[in-house]
Design a protein around this nucleic acid. Structure first.
Length: 317
RNA sequence: GGUACCAUAGCUCAGUUGGUAGAGCAACGGACUGAAAAUCCGUGUGUCCCUGGUUCGAUUCCGGGUGGUACCA
């Protein structure tokens, strides 16, 4: 068991400041059960930073906490949206900060858990305040992309924001479109508006990244997909086939089954593809988390050991 | 037991008229400030089954093993 984990756990109990305990890690590593155990011991609540568990209609494919799990610890931002809602990380940042302000009135420590790195960053250091982009502008920019592809987007970006043109990944349409949208909305260059400064927060942040040996993680992911299928993932996906154009349904576990339902592959192939895409997602998450400078990387067993100690202390009291 | 065919990357397979090899998938690495389970970028990671022989040189040709597969008994 790691000494750092002990130190971290103690600090969350004794610090006089408010602490946001971030529990993250790749998909399938075991965040849900351990965050519930942690929050239970700390007698606090859980704020979700999982951008797919936000949607109340999605359950099996997103490995959302079960009703039983939700009953153990109060969760926030789990199933608070419909797949029909428009949502983005900016709205989340605002809502999460408002919520945390209230939670910290009652609790010393609050647990933030989930695997959406962008959303974790939104809470921990926030993003530059930019006005929301009008849906009509988005539609227009997207139409140009659809008709002319990157070749139409690049000169456009170069003319409105030559600095960002030099910085951006010119093969990534989403990045280019966003910068153009921001320019059309504000009349200012995205490269000037994006300061990347860290916004001060009225709480401290401790980050735990849960990890496992790669092979073990991938085996868990593969098995979890099979379990999801056994639990009715196909039936769940079936009900969303007509909504597959929605962003919320552009999600691993559903989009592959839509391909099968559309007739472009077999069911066996679709399920294999869910496993592959889940593994790749986990890999991308790990890449993201490697950027966290002060994060504590732990194996789930380490945290389990800590929980055992806490349990002993609690029961002897 | 006999005959034929096969043995090359994690998998399925190409290929080398003899100069130590390359595709797909998987995998690995990375980027990412309002779609983020999204969207992008980069990278072959190899005792060419083992062992003798021929040869300047064998993964390639020849012999013998071993392990598969098919057919005949």
């Amino acid at each position: 068991m790691k000494k750092e984990v002990v130190a971290l756990m103690n600090s969350t109990k004794t610090s006089s400041d408010k602490t946001l305990l971030v529990v993250t890690g790749p998909t399938g590593v075991g965040k849900t059960s351990l965050s519930i155990a942690l929050a239970g011991h700390l007698q606090t609540e859980i704020v979700s930073a999982d951008a797919r568990q936000f949607y109340k209609e999605l359950n099996i494919g997103t490995a959302a906490p079960t009703p039983g799990e939700l009953a153990k610890v109060k969760h926030h931002f789990v199933g608070h949206l419909s797949v029909h809602d428009y949502y983005n990380v900016s709205i989340y940042e605002e809502q999460a900060l408002a919520l945390l302000e209230k939670l910290f009135e009652k609790h010393h420590v609050v647990v933030l858990t989930g695997g959406s790195g962008l959303y974790i960053d939104a809470v921990c250091h926030g993003f530059d305040e930019l006005p929301p982009v009008d849906a009509e502008i988005r539609r227009q920019v997207d139409q140009v992309y659809r008709q002319g592809g990157l070749d139409a987007l690049r000169p456009w970006l170069k003319s409105v924001d030559p600095e960002f043109y030099l910085q951006v990944d010119l093969a990534n349409p989403n990045r280019i479109k966003r910068a153009i949208e921001v320019f059309l909305t504000t009349g200012k260059k995205f490269s000037e508006l994006r300061t990347r400064k860290v916004n001060p927060r009225p709480f401290g942040v401790k980050t735990i990244v849960m990890d496992r040996p790669r092979q073990e993680l991938f085996e868990r992911i593969n098995q979890r997909v099979d379990q999801m299928v056994a639990d009715g993932l196909i039936e769940e996906a079936l009900t969303f086939f007509g909504l597959r154009h929605l962003n919320a349904l552009n999600t691993v576990g559903y989009k592959e089954l839509f391909d099968w339902l559309a007739g472009s592959c077999t069911l066996v192939q679709a399920i294999e593809k869910i496993k592959t895409n889940s593994r790749r997602y986990a890999k991308r998450q790990i890449t993201w988390f490697k950027r966290y400078p002060d994060a504590l990387w732990v194996r789930p067993d380490d945290v389990k050991g800590i929980l055992g100690i806490l349990e002993e202390r609690t029961s002897k009291k």
